[in-house]
Amino acid sequence: MTYRSHADLGGQDVPGAIVQEPEGEYFHAPWEPRVMALVVATGPTGISNIDMNRSARETLPNYRDLSYYEIWLAALEKLASEKGVLGDTPPRPKQVLRADAVLATIKKGSPASRPASRPARFSVGDHVRTAAVQPEHHTRLPAYARAKVGVIERVHGVHVFPDTNARGLSESPQWLYTVEFAARELWGESAPAPHSIISVDAFEPYLEPA
């Protein structure tokens, strides 16, 4: 089956204005805060991980027709039902977020960094070429940055690899880099802002020396 993300929007021709919003206006319907809280609260239960969430969201066939909290809701429904959580014999939750633990849990976060088991392949200043082929699963290299030459700008350490974690395979931690591209490399000579620089954060398997 072909994997198709509907969320990879960088550089696409998307109509519509960017509608500004005052600070402090976080929700636009009474159910939206509830969805935000449900998604955060189900985190520790083991229904999914952050990469599975993103994969479930980006593959919703009607992704582009939904508001963001509708996307979150539909993906949570999908994951909960796939895990059998809503059935008659649901698996036991790994951990349940209790009210008195919420603030400490937020403060703690869930770092994606992991210990390094081998040295980084690239260093700051190295020229790299990004992978050309879109894999048949969740990945985090945007289409606009495929088969392009950029420069390593930062080395972030070793982080959980979304490509495997999203499929429940393993975390397979990988070195993570910020890779800078010249606007002309990405958009050609007619780039609207030809002197701008664009970066993505790319995992080592996405990169080859250039």
Binding site: I47, L73, L97
Partner: peptide, 25 residues
């Protein structure tokens, strides 16, 4: 209604503490 239904099911199955949702919001 969809959100309420999902919250009710997740609460019933022991996955959610509704009071935790209030604190999060």
């Amino acid at each position: 209604l969809r959100v309420r239904a999902l919250e009710a099911r997740l609460t019933e199955k022991g996955y959610i503490d509704p009071a935790a949702l209030d604190v999060l919001v």
